[in-house]
Amino acid sequence: VLTGIHLGAYGLDLSPPTSLFQLLQQIEREKLIPRVRLSSIETNEISEKLIDLLMTSKTICPHLHLTLQSGDNEILKRMNRPYSAENFRELVLNLKNSIPDLSIGVDVIVGFPGEGEKEFHHTFSLLEELPITYLHIFPFSPRKGTLASQFPERVDGNIVKIRGKLLRNLGSKKRRDFYRTYLNKRLKVLIEAKRDKETYLLKGLSRNYIPILVDAEDKFINKEVTVKISAVTGEKVRGTIEI
């Protein structure tokens, strides 16, 4: 996994400067590792070049975790975010049209100062309509020394909890719907070292970030195998290794 506090800005501080795109090109070209996953990346740092690379790559996993934070333009301005809800919508639709198997996770902050019912509705509606896979929900918490910590119009804690629950429920539905589209289909899965605690089955992650349980021997650990998805129960996915 390529990870960092600001992954999309990789290489800008190097001499000579480089970029995340150039790094991924090199990884793809030199086949240094069989597969690589990107961690969280800013919405405005997904370029057309990066999308084109993701479309054709045999190495980069079809999974992106995007930072939206709010689907309301006024709240985004208060957050000093360099994109709009319309930019985000266009990006997600472009990504899914270009890479149909892409899994898209989204970060959202609930209860940012000034978030009323209208602003929250804009966020919920945007996420509801778009083909995203899952949500990471964070309640706003003031951090000393930031502008946001001084903003008035704080949102009541009970309201934040209610809104957070609504978004978590939406995220769970999105995740289940995404998983169900792969029933009876085959996916490349990297089998992990530790078995599932509840079932003691082997577990692994598909390239597009679906956790999958398989009844198999330890010899498959740390190997990427082809798995046919046989059952999807809620957020539990099971499959069979094909040899």
Rank of each mutant, 00 (worst) to 15 (best):
G4A: 11
G4Y: 02
H6C: 09
A9W: 05
Y10A: 01
G11F: 06
L12D: 00
L14W: 09
P16G: 15
T18L: 04
L20W: 07
L20Q: 03
F21P: 00
F21L: 15
L23Q: 04
L23Y: 02
L24A: 02
Q26H: 09
R29C: 10
E30N: 14
E30W: 03
L32S: 02
L32I: 10
R35V: 02
S39F: 05
I41T: 14
E42R: 04
E45V: 14
E48L: 08
K49V: 01
I51N: 03
I51Q: 01
M55I: 00
K58E: 15
K58C: 01
T59N: 07
T59W: 01
I60S: 01
C61M: 14
C61F: 09
P62A: 11
T67E: 09
L68F: 13
D72H: 14
D72V: 13
E74R: 06
L76N: 05
R78E: 06
N80G: 05
S84M: 05
S84N: 06
S84K: 12
A85N: 04
F88H: 04
F88G: 03
E90C: 10
V92R: 01
L93V: 11
L95S: 08
N97Y: 10
S98T: 03
I99S: 03
P100V: 03
S103A: 15
I104E: 03
D107S: 11
V108Y: 08
V108D: 05
I109P: 05
V110I: 13
P113D: 02
G114N: 13
E115H: 04
G116R: 14
G116C: 06
E119P: 12
E119T: 08
H122Y: 03
H122V: 11
H122I: 01
F124P: 00
F124H: 09
F124W: 09
F124C: 02
L127M: 13
P131D: 11
I132G: 08
I137V: 15
P139V: 06
P139D: 12
S141R: 14
S141Y: 13
K144H: 09
T146Q: 12
L147W: 08
S149N: 08
P152E: 14
E153Y: 14
D156S: 05
N158D: 06
V160E: 09
K161D: 12
I162L: 11
K165Q: 15
L167H: 02
R168H: 07
L170E: 07
K173C: 14
K174C: 10
R176P: 00
F178L: 02
F178I: 01
Y179F: 11
R180N: 07
R180V: 00
T181W: 12
Y182W: 15
Y182R: 04
L183N: 08
N184Q: 14
K185E: 14
R186P: 00
L187E: 11
L187S: 03
K188W: 00
A193K: 09
A193Q: 08
K197M: 13
E198R: 15
T199Q: 05
Y200G: 03
L205T: 13
S206Y: 02
Y209M: 10
Y209Q: 04
I212F: 03
V214P: 06
K223M: 06
V225L: 04
V225S: 08
T226F: 01
V227N: 10
V227C: 10
A231M: 12
V232P: 00
V232N: 00
T233G: 01
T233S: 13
V237M: 01
R238K: 15
R238F: 11
R238I: 08
G239S: 09
G239T: 08
T240G: 03
E242F: 11
I243F: 12
I243G: 02
